[in-house]
Simulated assay, not measured.
Amino acid sequence: MKKDAAKDIKIAFFDVDGTLVDMEKKIISPKMIETLKRLKKNGIILCIATGRGPYMVPTFPGIDFDVFLAFNASYCYTKDEVIFENPILIEDVRKIVANAAAINRPISVANVEGCAANGCDKDLADYFAIGKQKVKVADDFEKIMNGKVYQLMVGCGKEEYEALLKDVDGARITAWWPRAADITPAKGNKGVGVEKVLEYYHLKKENAIAFGDGSNDIEMLQAAGIGVAMGNATEDVKAAADVICGDVTEEGIYYYCIEHGLI
């Protein structure tokens, strides 16, 4: 991106884990806080895009995000209204839960209010711990799974993906951690969320920049005018991005924004 291209950027999308937040330290750095504040001061709309549900989206001191793309953008909202929602078909939710049980994997379903699981194993517990959450095993799991479900979370490896999605047409796996997966609507991803948000603000693709590091960020980077992969991103993300910035541990976003005149 040329330095003068910064004038076209009006909105910025950020993944959380591995992008805004160092996965090892699990905290946002003072420099990243400064970056977000300066972007906001420059009139750039700030959007957080995450696999987490609304109740798990982190808050950062002094930062007021404008838009939230939760559940890998299956539920997009501002503080005042819902921009877009895309729940998984009930029949697909039921099939996925049955498929998980068949391979002895407990599973958690998520709606806007929270998560409910039918059990827990180490992989699922460790996955929730990344977001500083605990798995909630619910007595009314069946009732919740038959309501609006935006995402399912299950501990698994890649070799289990096929079994989990057996005979399921309307859902897909979006994974950013090797020991677990998020299962989301087949036609939903962070890229769709970016498109819906741009439409909401009457902005064009070239007005958007996006930062990410995991495989579930690929569509988001492609939907933005400028897709930036973190230095710590997986190779498929780097291949899909327009440019690569520094590692999250090296304040990659801060230095990228400085270099290209965004702050």
Rank of each mutant, 00 (worst) to 15 (best):
E81A: 11
A110R: 07
T78S: 05
L89Q: 11
N72K: 09
V93W: 12
T78K: 01
F84K: 10
V82N: 00
N99C: 07
A110D: 07
K95M: 14
I88E: 02
E91D: 15
I96P: 02
Y77L: 12
N86F: 13
C76I: 10
N86I: 09
K95Y: 02
A102D: 15
I96N: 02
K95S: 11
A98S: 14
S108I: 08
I103P: 01
A73G: 06
N72W: 13
G114P: 03
F71I: 10
G119L: 05
R105A: 12
I107N: 00
G119K: 02
P87Y: 10
N111K: 06
A101L: 10
D80C: 08
I83K: 08
C120A: 15
R105Q: 11
E113S: 11
A117V: 07
F71P: 01
I107Q: 01
G119T: 10
A110C: 04
I103Q: 05
V97L: 12
C120D: 06
C120G: 04
L89P: 00
A73F: 07
N99D: 09
D80R: 15
D92G: 06
I103R: 07
T78W: 02
R94Q: 15
F84N: 11
K95A: 14
P87M: 09
A116H: 04
T78C: 10
E85Q: 14
A116Q: 09
K79V: 06
I96L: 02
I107R: 00
D121T: 10
Y75S: 03
F84L: 11
I88H: 00
Y75F: 15
D80I: 10
I103C: 14
A101G: 11
A102T: 06
E113M: 12
A116T: 12
S108Q: 02
V109G: 02
E113A: 14
F84Q: 08
G119H: 04
G114V: 03
V82K: 08
Y75V: 02
I83Y: 10
A100E: 07
I88G: 01
C76V: 12
A98R: 13
N118I: 12
G114C: 07
F71G: 09
I103H: 08
A98F: 05
Y77Q: 04
I90G: 01
V112R: 15
I103T: 03
N104L: 07
D92I: 11
N86T: 08
G119E: 03
Y77S: 12
K79Q: 13
D80K: 15
E81T: 07
P87G: 14
E81I: 11
V97S: 06
I83R: 00
N104F: 13
V93N: 06
A73V: 08
I83F: 12
N72C: 06
V112E: 14
A73C: 09
A101H: 10
E81Y: 10
L89W: 01
K79R: 15
Y75I: 01
Y77W: 09
G119P: 04
N111E: 03
Y77C: 08
A116V: 09
